[in-house]
Amino acid sequence: MRRETQNILLVLLGGALLKIGITGDYLQYVKPAQLPWVLAGGGVMVALGAVAILRDIRAHARQPAGLEANTAHHGHHHPARSAWLLLLPVLAVFLVAPPALGADSVARTEARAPAPASAAFPPLPGGAVVPLSLTEFVTRAGWDSGGSLNGKTVQLTGFVTHAHGSILLARMVITCCAADAYPLTVRLTGPATPAYPDDTWLRVTGQAVPGTASSANRYTPDLTVTAVDRITQPPDPYED
């Protein structure tokens, strides 16, 4: 790859990192805590690429005319056109941000519930409806022998996916970035169960069915649905 291509690629890659950091699209790939590193990495790449380009321009301006013509002649016979193909993924980030992991990722990855550090769960807060993350709901359903979910009406947020004839509410969990993501799933049951296509984001209200989350079904508890609201994808689509 020629130096000019390397420098331009470096600037564009750094610019792509800055762009997804500023617009918030970085949340499709990494946790919110990684934003300073995304911006810092993008800024360093842009700076290094810009310095290299300026240095090459100055060196080219100082180059003797005869040597310049000879270099251009050799460059004409040995173009590095294929190297420019490496710019296509970077340009794609500028033009179209890939979506967050969704129903397809759930189908290709085994669901699981993170084992809690302790089997003792504090009681849920009072109120007619208790908002919970899917992580907390699935963990309590699978590991809480005290039955803290029993009789409680909860509100969960996630996207729709389908498996084995069931409608699931899912959320991807990441530790660092989308590369280590795994799904949590809840099986929606009852007459109010919604019929939506995959990747539709919902806010679902209902009650857990005791004893339905086990290692046999990858800790996927049943939720008897009482109400459903269709929503837009939240800015941060992942849980941690």
Score class of each variant (00 low, 15 high):
Ala92Val: 08
Ala50Leu: 12
Thr200Gln: 14
Asp199Gly: 09
Glu110Lys: 15
Leu188Ala: 07
Gly142Lys: 02
Val186Thr: 06
Gln63Thr: 07
Pro237Glu: 08
Asp25Glu: 12
Leu54Asp: 10
Thr200Gly: 13
Val46Ile: 08
Ala47Thr: 10
Val130Leu: 14
Ser145Gln: 12
Leu54Val: 06
Ile20Gln: 01
Gly42Leu: 00
Val154Ala: 11
Leu132Lys: 14
Pro98Lys: 02
Asp236Pro: 11
Pro64His: 07
Leu124Val: 00
Leu9Gln: 10
Gly206Asn: 04
Leu223Ala: 13
Pro123Leu: 01
Val90Met: 01
Val44Asp: 00
Thr5Lys: 08
Gly102Met: 04
Leu184Lys: 07
Ala195Asn: 10
Pro36Cys: 08
Leu13Trp: 02
Val30Gln: 09
Glu4Val: 15
His60Trp: 09
Asp144Arg: 05
Tyr182Pro: 13
Gln63Leu: 14
Gln63Val: 00
Thr157Asn: 12
Trp201Ser: 11
Phe121Met: 08
Arg230Leu: 13
Leu124Gln: 01
Gln155His: 01
Val46Asn: 02
Lys31Ala: 15
Gln63Lys: 14
Thr161Cys: 13
Leu95Lys: 02
Asp56Pro: 10
Gly49Asp: 02
Gln207Phe: 00
Asn150Thr: 06
Val173Lys: 08
Ser148Arg: 05
Thr71Arg: 15
Thr226Cys: 03
Tyr182Glu: 10
Ser166Lys: 13
Pro36Lys: 05
Pro210Arg: 07
His74Trp: 08
Gly15Asp: 03
Leu91Pro: 06
Asp229Glu: 15
Ser105Pro: 08
Ala113Lys: 04
Gly151Trp: 00
Ile22His: 07
Val129Gly: 15
Thr153Glu: 05
Asp25Ala: 11
Ala50Ser: 14
Pro116Asn: 10
